[in-house]
Design a protein around this nucleic acid. Structure first.
Length: 658
DNA sequence: AGTCGAGTTCTTTTT
DNA sequence: GAACTCGACT
């Protein structure tokens, strides 16, 4: 209990800037916290401060951008105050929305057991919708692909613009594209509702619909959350901003962010949210936190110089002030090519280890995953362990999705998307056959007033299954039926265990040569499931926690070298940072130069550099070879625009040892 | 009509 | 290495 904890000495724990923000009186506040200035610290102490001044845990809403951030902050609050983290409402916008919809969704036609689908499933549904609405559309070569349309729709929804306008904007040369995409979307929406599934954007949109149509439900939360805190405010989009507004009707909000670190506009992040905060909350107080505890003055000077190249007027002026002792200016390292780059980095790392650094002190950052290929190869060649926050996430692995699809379906038999996923594993069953089977079973079940999962294992249905699949079908349908029955009585972990031991366990043995690895994953899923009280909550979190990457080896890997994209490195810090591929075409990417947002790429570079505490290496490969053709590359424009006195160029002769 | 297999192309960022 | 295309096969 909180009383067991000695009162926190806020004055002692914080600097003046932080203290002012943490103890700010009621009313809207905007905290502009630069990189490394203790943003998380400020936010967690703010929560602790509120709690210590008598606010109840369930009166605080803490909205974060990632699950990781939410977890970290709640843990720190718990350490500080002793209040268990689950007493607080903290999480991503999506997970909070999910939580509320699970309770009140029925008011807008969402059953309690609705399922959340991921991006690829959403694409599949959209694709079938397009095929229904306009069968010729997909076959016409000049038309955008379903994936691109899905992207466009999502962007429009997140920025709260008309889908038809967005489509017409992007494809002015396609006749009537606006109406078409609009029609696709309408069908897609209907399809999801009939399956009782929601995509990511639905969670946010439907929450707003729920609040709008049911003011009495909205009032519950508006009244309850006396304090709303939003992290990474610069990366919120219009949809999220509207959600914040729908909670904070009395301006009881503290937004924390750094406009210089806005790197998600491609996902609809709206710079205006932070820049126009004081307009929407007229009495807002701005707190600037500019003391940087992370980096040497040299690294900070360099980072500040990146921002100086920004066109003026689009940002709050700020300059990070260093308190750390002086170090070496950042190294600019031209290398021949990416292989050479890998060799340089490995040699230098060896040197750093000899100097007494640990592998875990070192991070290698890059713009895109594939930039790290050569480094990865070199690292495994030399048997150096590394931790990579890779593109493939735990939940997205095929076997995890196969298994959860079964549980999902048993829990919500209208989820045809899930049905297609696992039935499609059987021979001679593709999307079409799967759909027909579902339709047939439904009619049969209705006629005989049978439970759907019961009907699935009947003789009549079996006869409709292609011959090659019938044997597997008997075992599969039995498992689905068992799962469905178990939902009533069993806990989530028991249900997952049932699925792991069922049809799928024999199936993976036949399909995958490395089935033992995969079975291990599935078994770890049972452990994960035991953390949840209801199967709905488990299924939701499995999707929403998708970014919780393959961390099962997490514990033993903590001590090793980190490879990560700049985006995923946000919020982290390392004594030694290597940024690789700093050439025009790689960072910024060619695509960004051609038709992207250079300003955002520059902010991304700023984020990358401000991760470094002691030493920063900027590697520039002069040649890039893709396939057979070799191309000359220019140094990244972001380095060229910086005063050369702020960094030192390292000349490495091909054979010179470090 | 729908599924399967071989061959080909191209790699952003995440809830 | 995955995702997509295209032609062959049931």
């Amino acid at each position: 209990m909180a009383s067991d904890f000695s009162p926190i000495d806020f004055k002692e724990a914080l600097n003046q800037e932080q203290y002012d923000a943490v103890t700010a009186p009621e009313g809207p506040a905007l905290v502009l916290a630069g990189a490394g200035s203790g943003k998380t610290r400020t936010l967690t102490y703010r929560v602790a401060y509120l709690l210590s001044s008598g606010i109840q845990p369930n009166e605080i809403l803490l909205l974060t951008f990632t699950n990781k951030a939410a977890k970290e902050m709640l843990e720190r609050v718990e350490d500080l105050t002793g209040i268990p983290r689950h007493h607080l409402w903290g999480g991503t916008f999506h997970s909070i929305a999910q939580r509320i919809l699970r309770t009140h969704g029925e008011a807008i036609g969402l059953k309690k057991n609705y399922n959340i689908i991921d991006e690829s499933e959403a694409e599949d549904i959209l694709k079938s919708s397009i095929a229904v609405v306009d069968p010729k559309f997909i076959k016409t070569k000049d038309n955008p692909k379903p994936k691109v349309i899905a992207n466009l729709i999502s962007y429009a929804r997140n920025t709260r613009t008309e889908i038809s306008d967005e489509a017409a904007d992007r494809y002015p040369f396609i006749e009537g594209i606006g109406q078409k995409v609009e029609a696709f979307y309408k069908h897609y929406k209907k399809s999801k509702l009939s399956q009782q599934v929601t995509d990511y954007d639905d969670l946010l949109e439907l929450l707003l619909v729920l609040f709008k149509e049911n003011p009495e439900i909205a009032a519950i939360y508006q009244k309850r959350f006396k304090n709303i805190l939003v992290d990474e405010f610069q990366d919120t989009n219009q949809l999220q901003s509207d959600i914040v507004d729908s909670f904070a009707t009395a301006h009881q909000i503290m937004a924390v962010g750094d406009d210089a670190q806005c790197i998600y506009t491609w996902r609809g992040a709206n710079y205006e949210n932070i820049m126009g905060f004081t307009d929407r909350h007229p009495n807002a107080v701005i707190h600037k936190i500019e003391t940087n505890y992370r980096s040497t003055p040299e690294i900070l000077d360099f980072s500040n110089a990146i921002l100086k190249a920004q066109p003026s007027g689009l940002h709050f002026s700020k300059e990070l002030k260093a308190v750390k002792p002086s170090g070496e200016p950042p190294y600019f390292v031209p290398v021949m090519d990416t292989r050479n780059q890998a060799q340089f980095i490995l040699k230098r790392i060896q040197g750093l280890i000899d100097e007494g650094f640990n592998y875990s002190d070192i991070a290698i950052l890059y713009r895109a995953h594939y930039h790290s290929m050569d480094i990865q190869m070199e690292l495994s060649r030399q048997n150096i362990e590394y931790q990579i926050t890779s593109g493939v996430r735990f939940f997205e692995q095929a076997h995890i999705r196969d298994l959860t699809a079964q549980v999902r379906f048993a829990s919500n038999p209208s989820d045809i998307t899930a049905f297609k996923r696992f039935t499609g594993l059987l021979p001679r069953i593709g999307p079409k056959t799967s759909e027909n089977l579902h339709k047939f079973t439904r009619t049969y079940a209705e006629k005989n007033t049978l439970n759907f999962c019961d009907a699935l294992r009947s003789e009549v249905v079996l006869k409709k299954v292609p011959k090659d699949a019938q044997e597997e079908w008997e075992s599969l349908s039995e498992t689905i039926y068992e799962l469905n029955q178990a939902l009533e009585t069993e806990k989530p972990d028991a249900i997952i265990r049932l699925a792991v031991d069922g049809w799928y366990s024999s199936f993976i043995r036949e399909i995958y040569p490395n089935w033992t690895d995969r079975e291990e994953d599935l078994i770890s899923l049972i452990g994960f499931a035991s953390r949840f009280d209801t199967i709905e909550e488990l299924l939701a979190q499995l999707i929403l926690l998708a970014s919780e990457t393959t961390e099962r080896t997490g514990e033993e890997r903590k001590h090793c070298l980190r490879l990560t994209t700049v985006h995923q490195a946000k919020g982290l810090e390392f004594p030694i940072v290597f940024i690789i591929g700093l050439a025009d075409g790689l960072f910024p990417l060619k695509r960004t130069i051609d038709d992207g947002d250079i300003e955002e790429a520059r902010r991304l570079f700023y984020v990358a550099c401000t991760r470094a505490q002691k030493e920063l290496y900027l590697c520039y490969p002069m040649l890039n070879q893709q396939g057979n053709n070799i191309m000359r590359l220019n140094p990244s424009r972001f380095i060229q625009e910086i005063d050369p006195s702020l960094f030192q160029t390292l000349k490495i002769a091909p054979n010179r040892a470090w």
